[in-house]
Design a protein around this nucleic acid. Structure first.
Lengths: 353, 353
DNA sequence: ACCTTTCACTAAATCGTTTGAGTAACCAGA
DNA sequence: TCTGGTTACTCAAACGATTTAGTGAAAGGT
């Protein structure tokens, strides 16, 4: 199996050296730019010979001797299912490449078994560091062998008790604060939060950020305006219908993710309410859906690329890896779904608050 | 940089052998299941020793001697931007893993320069085969060094002149035929095609499939109902508005991708037309948007997982790699956007055709 | 003229595994 | 007793780079 290819034997360093009429030591020195006292003439002879033969070093042999492979691995729980989260990989890869390291990528597809096998396969290949990435921010457990090399967690974290790793996470709290503030600054005071499933990182942090913004602007949070759905359009659809069936509905919705905002859009549309004229909406995640929705949805982007890049950077910085958690800000994407509250709505809301 | 980790030196085969009181040859034989005449007692001693010390073979040393690395590489033009296309990677990875091969993944991010560097880095690491994948079906050019190993193209193809590779592509033509037939079988006869940008594989094949279906069912294609947009919602929005501003509009829309269908949805909604009661719509691609749209969109899924899996399978089959193109069928996703034409519409359409 | 330093290079060891060749020990058969 | 054939191993040479420890010659200093 897999026998094909133009299998001319690969050129070795010895052949280059012999063509250049030097020892392989010298050839190695030249080709690795350890220029220590080698005259330009010789250097040129060697590089010319290498070029002529199309020489490329055998990475296995090099790694064997050097005990360094210049490569790291990223293990992700999925690259398929989540649209833009692949940016994590891109960010990590670009950082690694720009530092002359290769990044091995393995998709564990959420299976702990595959993950373990992946870590072992990677350690067999003498990787020098390990990145773990999750597509949705969540808690993970590290496979035991991972402790053999420096490890950084991207968009995921360990149980606080055994938090012995470097973690890079999106600052959802500050992000939802920003999103909520966009509505407050537009003049809204009756703002509902349509959150997702209980208990996840995003659920907790975005809720906090929402409350932070209210407090900072001196608004009392109204618990009846804080609802929990399922991160999906249908959940948010129901919640929106309920909110607007009650007296004194909000003038603005903070949807804790874009899919929920999309469900809210549908509900508002079916109620005959216009966005943003009658109700303003903000989302979170900056998924494709939010660019294409009408009106285009104002939302917060997850800094996936930067998470990947920074995670890799921390891995390389290789300081004795004291356990830390670093938060990366979520940039806002201002589009067309936020406007000042309409007169009637804001009058109503002022009256009742 | 990158110096950390619990860097206890790795256990070597020699240490295992010495603990088991055999030569490293014997240890190697046992651990690689080359059982040639080694009694069970000895075997057990070796495996026990290996387990006790936590031995794992050094892949570099093994590759150096064996001249085989049991690994292949997949070079993709993007994993980030396209939602579900990451399934290609998953399909390829799972096939490779199940055949004891590791799959290296590199995201060239569309850059030919990175692509070339990636191929070279991979060849340095002695990979045994190469997969090239594109996220949108398109023509590519192979970097020259790729010819050193067997190569398979997934969801992309070479210029027909130099078509010297094995290619695996989605059968867009049959897929659009199926999609169109769904509408015809529901009773529609006036069906418009909202296509994307001219000239791409998807554009050509989906158009063909659309016409195939009409012909097979004995319907005359009406050129005025075939339009070209830009694969995006706004283009499809305009085209839909135009189509329905003219006399004798269609009763069904074949949108050549889901994003276009999404634009068409918006247009139909703003015209007060209900889907599927007044107008039926089918899409293509089965993007997330189509599950969440109201009504949920009937569409064709791209067989990304299968493309990746099959591509890898062809690579492994390693038959002298005669240039071939293999097409993979696109499964349909029947949802709620297709219904029989309404009486008035179908009467009108019958009158004018 | 003699010693030291620098220059330009090389021989050989090394990384950890696999593998071709070889060998002791034992037994069967002549 | 000797030959031939298994069985159960072992020795040592690869694989292709990097690197340590030199070496011989020329240059420089006194």
């Amino acid at each position: 199996m897999l026998g094909g290819g133009k299998s001319e034997r690969r050129i070795t360093l010895a052949e280059v050296a012999s063509l250049a009429q030097v020892s392989s030591t010298t050839a190695s020195l030249v080709l690795n730019n350890r220029e220590a006292g080698i005259p330009a003439v010789t250097k040129d002879r060697v590089t010319a010979a290498a070029a002529e033969l199309g020489y490329r070093a055998n990475a296995s042999a090099r790694a064997l001797r050097r005990r360094r492979t210049e490569s790291i691995a990223l293990i992700t729980d999925a690259i398929a299912t989540t649209p833009y989260a692949g940016e994590i990989i891109l960010g990590a890869q670009e950082y690694a490449w720009s530092h002359e390291h290769l990044l091995y990528i393995v998709d564990s597809n959420g299976s702990a078994e595959v993950e373990l096998a992946a870590v072992e396969a990677m350690l067999d290949r003498q990787i020098e560091g390990l990145l773990f990435a999750a597509m949705h921010t969540r808690r993970i457990a590290l496979p035991a062998p991972a402790s053999a090399v420096p490890t950084v967690l991207i968009n995921c974290f360990l149980d606080p008790d055994e938090a012995t790793a470097v973690e890079v996470l999106p600052n959802d709290r500050a992000g939802e604060d920003t999103a909520t503030s966009l509505l407050i600054n537009a003049g809204h005071t009756r703002i509902a939060l349509i959150n997702g499933d209980t208990g996840t990182y995003a659920w907790i942090e975005r809720r906090r950020g929402f409350l932070d913004a209210l407090h900072r602007h001196g608004l009392q949070p109204d618990e009846t305006l804080i609802r929990e759905g399922n991160w999906l359009p249908d959940g948010a659809y129901q919640l929106t219908m309920q909110l607007f069936a009650e007296p004194d509905p909000p003038t603005a919705l903070v949807c804790a993710n874009d899919r929920s905002a999309y469900g809210a859009y549908d509900a508002l549309r079916s109620l005959g309410l216009r966005i943003p004229k009658d109700v303003s909406v903000v989302g979170y995640d900056d998924q494709e859906i939010s660019r294409f929705a009408r009106p285009a949805l104002t939302t917060m982007a997850l800094p996936h690329y930067e998470l990947g890049r920074r995670g890799c950077e921390l891995l390389f910085s290789g300081q004795r890896m004291s356990p830390t958690r670093e938060l990366i800000d979520c940039p806002s994407r201002i589009r067309d779904s936020v406007a000042p509250p309409s007169i009637t709505a804001s009058a109503a809301s002022t009256r009742n608050t």
